[in-house]
Design a protein around this nucleic acid. Sequence first.
RNA 1: GCGGGUAUGGCGGAAUUGGCAGACGCGUCGGUCUUAGGAACCGAUGGGAGACCGUGCAGGUUCGACCCCUGUUACCCGCACCA
Length: 800
Amino acid sequence: MKYDFTVGDKKWQDRWEAEHAFEAKDDHTLPKFYGLIEFPYPSGAGLHVGHIKAFISMEVLSRKRRMQGYNVLFPIGFDAFGLNTENYAIKTKTHPRIVTDRNIANFTRQLKSVGYSFDWSRVVDTTDEDYYKWTQWIFLKMFEHGLVFRDKTLVNYCPSCKVVLSNEDSQGGKCDICHSDVVQKSKEVWYLRITEYADKLLSGLDLVDYPANIKQQQINWIGKSTGAFVNFELDGIEEKLRIYTTRPDTLFGVTFMVIAPEHPIIDKYADKIANMDEVKAYREACAKKTEFERTQLQKDKTGVKIDGLTAINPLSGKKIPVYIADYVMMGYGTGAIMAVPAHDERDYEFAKKFGIDIIEVIKGGDISKEAYTGDGEMINSDFLNGYDNKKDSIARVIEVLTERGIGEGGVTYKMKDWAFNRQRYWGEPIPIVHCPHCGMVPVPYDELPLRLPEVEDFEPGEGGESPLAKVESFVNCKCPKCGGDAKRETDTMPQWAGSSWYFLRYCDPKNESAFAGMDALKYWMPVDWYNGGMEHVTRHMIYSRFWYRFLYDLGEVPYIEPYMKRSAVGLVLGSDGQKMSKSLGNVVDPLDIVSAYGADTLRTYVCFMGDYGVASPWSDTGVKGAKRFLDRVAGLTELVHGKGVTPALESSFHKTIKKVSADIEELKFNTAIAALMTLLNEIYDNGSLTRDELLTFVKLLCPFAPHISEEIAETLGEKSLLSLAAWPEHDEAKTVDATVELALQVNGKLRGTLTVDKNASKEDVLSLAKADARVLSQTEGKTIVKEIYVPGRIVNIVVK
RNA sequence: GCGGGUAUGGCGGAAUUGGCAGACGCGUCGGUCUUAGGAACCGAUGGGAGACCGUGCAGGUUCGACCCCUGUUACCCGCACCA
């Protein structure tokens, strides 16, 4: 048989759709499997080959699970709000709704042409008002529970996109969307209090099966540290200077204090500061730098001593100077530190530069040369002298600090609260009304969704305000609380909002009275397996775990963590080994492969190209190899004779069933396909196989290459869909060969092989081995000192 | 700087986790069939005439090391003056 993909692919795709083959069933008594892929952003560029690889793992697994009798939820949706669509809409003067609909239609057509077994009856579109109604609903619940607040701070602002970015969206000082330089701007913006969930997000990691590196990355991102808060008295000032330290044991070694340039205490006590001009100048110089630039210049410490502020060491009573320096960040801890130059490299460098005292409090280093950050015996530390630092002195200090009311133990996090806003059109409107009498008032739940108004002009305002601000009919409203004139919030939510809960909507996508019904949630949640890119490990995953955990605390979802298992997909690189990019001209369009070779070839090649979790380069000739393999599979139809079992192939079939089944579970698709290739070669060597064997073969192939597998099954007389047929089971006893080939070694060097009965005794094997000519030639005239026999593997004769 | 990872033929990658290194595929070479082949099929393919040598490099443990240990180099990915 020859398979014509130009006809067959469509034929089977149509039939799957007509028979609703891949739609999840409402029968909640069946064993379930919920496989999730990161839903795509429907860009105008269409499907990328990276999407193909990203989706193929859960595709293969879901197809196998269905054949194993599971009720499978393998959904697809579109994360369609976002700046790219909006910028395109502005450029082409087309409404983003139209652009989005067009792109989704295109993605849908393309995804279907690859034969993905998504449940198309549950498609979720984050820009659909029936969806974002619930995004707004969850936001209001957070507002209600004090997790939403507004704050005026320095924000990362992209002058090109005219939008405020979160820290996550502006890493390296570049805008995540357009890659222009981010500037610092003072603005009042919305925040979600994600830091309140820091500990829950940390402890939740113990309950889930993520790879160690992913867990580690999330742990680092949250960045919990334990230490102490200490309040330093300021000479002649009522207020105390509060600092955070992880090393309260070194308190007696404090010789100066440093505060961040933005620290509020400067303005508050400006009249006490003698050199205010100098301090101001320094502060302005720092403000001009972005946080990125500040960290880049970490080599050289700069700072200014504040004349007029003197701190008092709460334990020793010594007076110590206070500096302002940009190596201390306002955003971490309290924005102020106690400096212990003897035992901190940064403080040491600063102290050397400014000629400040260095007091050693831990023995073990040479502080005349460098800071000593190791452990040792405490010295020069009054009641701590003689203690081992860290071990018990930290606990002792915290005890004393607490007793005397000068401080207490505490924790801090690197993670900051989530800047939750965009001043753009194409996002979920934040459902809050600003009332001159009542303040911030939430839009009542029964008025959701708060729809995006129709506007003519999607351009953001010059002051960086949202296009919604120009729509008077939207802005002007009545306060839901007092009925007086009020103004609507005009910011929209960031793109991460819609993707923070989409996996819940899939469970019950048409529900009108809740984001999803509890029955459906109890059955489908948690997600059994979530596959996606490493770039989403610290943003999307942490955000969505936060939203989910919040809903759990409200009793709205049934399990404590949303994703039971997570795995990562590796990039598809260009054939030159570099990241695919238009400028390098190494981009592969998956639809070109589909039209030239068929969907099965694309799918099989992507599975076969390498380790799924690792980046691997594209190879055009490799694609042809996949095509050749599938053509050879089709050729098997010519070799079919009779039914039942071919004795010469039986063991190979059982081994292959075992291997393919196990490899799919570990996403080792390359070796699964290699095993099918090996079996194929054996069948060709054998010259024939039975109908039943070919059926088994195409069942194993079906998750990878479903169209051709269905077609072959049909030629064998199968009437129902192969995609829903029972997955083959192997018989362990039949995977064991009657004879085994052992490696023959002398002194660990390979000298040949030996074929023996699988049940042969140790004595028999050893005597056979010692009698072997190739062994004899090495052992002759020497003394055998050791004989090693590992059944099924190796014989090693050690001689002297 | 800190944390995590990787290193195997001409290429992508295998190796039951300490037991025949290079499965499978690509490429290459030779052949068959062809007017032709950049199609298909068959055969060979780590290096070396050979004894032997080969998993980034140098050691170590072991009967036996791609795998474990020590040191080292290169590259990749996170985080980065985090107090």
